[in-house]
């Protein structure tokens, strides 16, 4: 299989090496794996390196923290509100595009590093 990263993981040339470095860099539970895949599929176009969301978050966060996968302060409740209510320039995402079950897996994946 072609191992070139998908567009969702790297939206720009500058993101290529960073994306490769980030991929599969930790042991995952099956749920985290499902959450990561869904995150890439549903959110990666804006939140991978080079995407709109990453570009805008880079204006507000220290280097590295603009990538949601690297954050340790995301909680499921915050993620779910951001997705369904929109935040800043991010439009709201419908349940047809990301179901509640899918959103729960994505939220769990993104909050896996959250410190209580």
């Amino acid at each position: 299989m072609n191992r070139m990263p998908t567009a969702r993981r790297c939206a720009l040339a500058g993101g290529l090496s960073l994306c490769l470095a980030l991929s599969w860099s930790f042991a995952e539970t099956p749920q985290e794996d499902a959450g990561r895949r869904l995150y890439e599929e549903k959110c990666g176009m804006c939140h991978a390196a080079g995407g709109m969301g990453t570009g805008l978050l880079a204006r507000r966060y220290p280097p590295g923290q603009e990538l949601l996968e690297q954050r340790s302060n995301l909680t499921p409740a915050f993620i779910e509100v951001a997705v369904r209510s929109g935040i800043g320039n991010m439009p709201r995402i419908s349940r047809a595009e990301v179901s509640d079950e899918q959103l729960a897996l994505i939220s769990r994946y993104l909050s896996r590093q959250a410190t209580p």
Partner: peptide, 20 residues
């Protein structure tokens, strides 16, 4: 190496940053 740009038909979203 692949040119990851819209000129090469690679999908992009970063131009939407202009709304900010």
């Amino acid at each position: 190496p692949p040119e990851l740009s819209a000129w090469a038909g690679v999908p992009i979203t970063f131009p939407l940053q202009n709304a900010n």
